[in-house]
Design a protein around this nucleic acid. Sequence first.
DNA 1: CGCTCTGATACCCCGCGGGTATCGCGCCGT
DNA 2: ACGGCGCGATACCCGCGGGGTATCAGAGCG
Lengths: 300, 300
Amino acid sequence: MDHQDRQDSQDRQDRQDTVEVRELRYFLAVAEELHFGRAAERLGMAQPPLSRAIQQLERRLGVLLLVRNRRGVALTEAGEVLRHEGRVAVDAATAAARRARRAGAGNDGSRTRLVLAVKAGDSHDLLRRLLGAYAAEADAAEVEILPSGTCEQGEMLRDGRADAALLHTPFNSLAGFDSEALVTEGQIAVLPARHPLATRPHLTLAEVSDLPDLPLARWARDGVHPPGPGPAITDQTQLAQLIALGRTVAVYPDSARAWLWTEHAAVPLTDAPPVVTHIAWPAHSRLLALAALVRTATRL
Amino acid sequence: MDHQDRQDSQDRQDRQDTVEVRELRYFLAVAEELHFGRAAERLGMAQPPLSRAIQQLERRLGVLLLVRNRRGVALTEAGEVLRHEGRVAVDAATAAARRARRAGAGNDGSRTRLVLAVKAGDSHDLLRRLLGAYAAEADAAEVEILPSGTCEQGEMLRDGRADAALLHTPFNSLAGFDSEALVTEGQIAVLPARHPLATRPHLTLAEVSDLPDLPLARWARDGVHPPGPGPAITDQTQLAQLIALGRTVAVYPDSARAWLWTEHAAVPLTDAPPVVTHIAWPAHSRLLALAALVRTATRL
DNA sequence: CGCTCTGATACCCCGCGGGTATCGCGCCGT
DNA sequence: ACGGCGCGATACCCGCGGGGTATCAGAGCG
């Protein structure tokens, strides 16, 4: 018997267009570190096999992914593409594993569990109402709230840690997800209560963005703070305290009034873009419990 | 040296949530065939290693994916989930490989190549104008037209065979893609020229959907025809001929007038939903040549 | 000019992916 | 009832390749 008839189409990809998740993880590590040694360490392996794996990947794809120069490596055009597409692919793979496990874990008597990613503290009131209304539904699943760091709800949706998320445009992107808009709100400047501007009926973005006595705080991104003036912060509590101490100012959606201190003042901004809270989920999801949650959310 | 410090977050997934593309391909084959022997044959391997691979996958996920009963297998809840999520993941992986290769192939002197999937024969005029306008752009890439079968443009976008596609709502779903609407058109009934209804100024869907003398044709889906009356067809030429012979009727967007025969008659439908042609692309794409193509398309 | 830091090469080994042979078992037929 | 059959699981073996250690090679740099 020779090599099959092979009229199948989807198994066609004659090992040329096939890449393993392991290879992609290796490549991503190198592409991010731009250093084989550190990448190998991060992957918990030795450097030589990593070098070899990347070489094999390049040979299989027939493409140069990295240029090895003195002092580290750089990405080629193809490497840049694989860095993005590969990230999507390994996220999709781990999402598949996580969601399959979650679906199976529900079989042992307990109900389906739905994981909802929300940015800690945001949309608190909306969330409370949503959970209350959903719990009253007939086929309601158990909803686990997954607090997410700054703007990483999309990532959680992509890699399967969450089944749905509350996102806020224009801060988060809805690209790649299905979504429904829930509420729209204006934005406010959160000022120290004793600041001169705190008594104003309203302000503009320009008026609060360049105050010499109140430099904007710098949020940590991936553990590092961007350079510039202003205090470096990592969570909302730090920010709230710094505002109360009269050291900085912040711009937030209206619903942030829920967590304001007495030493804070909220002044509406007239020209800030409106913030829309959406519920979003993977475009291809077929979880019926999720559909029910979305339906409940849009009826609020 | 013990098991590293492991402060890294994204490499955290302690081999529990990690799945290889190979395993997913194996599982998908079984999930589709519902038969280990046939699945193994399709994969070009023997049955025992396939069984073992699935067992290992189930053990690693800690979840039962298939129930083995007499006469074949059935999917569990978790299996159903993995069937969908796994398809997405392997598509994403092969897309990564294909797009990386394409990006690298452009480095050898030739320009970037952009692959645009279009349903053969549809939007012919729009496509001609788009290609003409784009070719005049400064940083225009070479655009390869990839003719796609019935409604498989989405699949091509997902698995990396195409970088962009022309989709038609409500026939195709835009879920998971970024898109821009290009043109909206009404629909027409394509009738045999000598049919009594052919002289009417307009018709309704109800009037043409249940004609006893003109049963609706049955399109092949994945190689098999749905049951029912009416002729079985696999491509548009067959349909055109059958209409010309007075054996069936079809509903098409206005632009289908481009390929009508003299023995055909086109009658506008008053209550058919409008067809919108979109240009769509993977939500995360960062190809600048693609951005230019989209910009050109929206300006038409 | 040697030291250092980088990625590449050389070489080895064992684990695992894949093969063949066979089993266990439920379903048929007569 | 019993033997044949169809199906997935098990047992066992083998060879490749992924991973390890030791070392090389070249480019900066003091």
